[in-house]
């Protein structure tokens, strides 16, 4: 099951998290109280040029020292603090959420590490695969993920999500089936600017995992969704493909459709499928992915999970349910359900 929401204000006007909380809570039928989370973009304008690293610490001793050893090797911590949280009766605190605003050293770039972002990717993979008791769950610029095990309201109140203002919001209400109800397993999943909320199960996970692991990504979160963030990072950032092309690689048209296309288009789609066969995502899913450029929502190739889209002026809403969209914006227009595999893209106005 699971319920998902993605919202973008294309004018970059920021909205606080209260309506998202209300909308997500409306879909409690789709969750089980085992996990919920929010991602918001534009929330750290004072540190907009730093990578905001959100980390779950099991204790503040050894894991924190080890994480900081890695951070100090690769760059400077501009600021760090505990993420403010507020005890909720229905939510059992198992980690301490912490945030670092971090800048990598430019002179560490070289060889396999081609950019600042490669450094951040390396740090995330290193911490998550080798340090017990520490998990980086958010690592983009001017954005952050807030998640925990619990019902959407409790998680929102735990982080006081209404205190954050963002121009993109993603939210997820979880009914876990394939990984334990641990905090790291809650959505959104994030790497660098990419955040993913996902409803469904990826039956091609083993193939996708083997594929991204060949490029140095390490799947450590015991769930299929993290691989989507890595696929977007690999295809969208490293291979520099447009969002439309990434979606066409992950959920391509059937060969029958490709065969019927005019020659140039046929060549393009055939090449995409042949090149990125291992990135194709199979199984039932509806997904919304956000980055600092916008959001994109799409479903699997035969649409085995629901996805609804609505618009209102510069607002674009994507969700599992129309009713959730109506909670955020009762005036919403153009409600429609996209076709299987069709990318729904919301970008900021130029």
């Amino acid at each position: 099951m699971c319920g998902i929401i993605g919202v973008i204000d294309k004018t970059r006007s920021r909205m606080d998290g209260s309506k998202i909380k209300a909308a997500l809570s409306l879909m409690n039928e789709r969750g089980s109280g085992d996990g919920a989370g929010y991602a918001a973009y534009g929330i750290y304008p004072d540190y907009a040029d730093c990578y905001a690293l959100h980390v779950f610490f099991d204790n503040m001793a050894e894991p924190k020292t080890k994480v900081e050893e890695i951070l100090h090797y690769w760059g400077t911590v501009v600021h760090q603090e505990e993420i403010p949280t507020f005890e909720q009766p229905g939510l059992k605190r198992v980690h301490t959420p912490w945030r670092y605003f971090f800048k990598p050293f430019d002179d560490m770039i070289g060889g396999k590490v081609g950019s600042e972002k490669d450094i951040i990717k390396h740090i995330v993979m290193e911490v998550n695969s080798s340090i017990d008791g520490a998990l980086v769950f958010s690592s983009g610029k001017n954005m952050g993920v807030f998640k925990a095990s619990g019902w959407p309201e409790d998680v929102a109140n735990f982080y006081r999500i209404e205190d954050y203002e963002g121009y993109i919001w993603l939210a997820h209400n979880r009914y876990p089936t394939n990984s334990p109800g641990w905090w790291g397993g809650a959505h959104p999943f994030n790497l660098l600017d990419w955040s993913v909320v996902h409803n469904g199960e990826i039956t091609s996970y083993g193939t996708n995992q083997r594929y991204v692991e060949g490029y140095g990504y390490k799947c450590t979160l015991l769930t299929d969704t993290e691989v989507v963030a890595y696929l977007f990072d690999l295809l969208g950032r490293q291979h520099e493909l447009h969002t439309e092309t990434v979606v066409k690689a992950l959920a391509p048209p059937f060969w029958d459709e490709i065969d019927r296309m005019p020659p140039a288009k046929e060549g393009l789609y055939r090449t995409i499928r042949m090149t990125y066969g291992s990135a194709l995502m199979n199984g039932p899913f509806a997904i919304v992915v956000a980055s600092n450029e916008g959001i994109v929502g799409f479903t699997d190739r035969i649409k085995l999970r629901p996805l609804v889209v609505g618009e209102n002026g510069d607002m674009l809403y994507i969700s599992s349910e129309e009713s959730a969209i109506r909670v955020i914006d009762p005036e919403v227009k153009n409600i429609r359900t996209p076709r299987a595999g069709e990318p729904i893209i919301g970008r900021f106005n130029a």
Partner: peptide
């Protein structure tokens, strides 16, 4: 039966 409709997603899928 494995919820896969394209051979690419079977290839190297040792998880299954």
């Amino acid at each position: 039966a494995a919820g896969i409709n394209s051979i690419e997603s079977m290839r190297g899928n040792r998880d299954r």
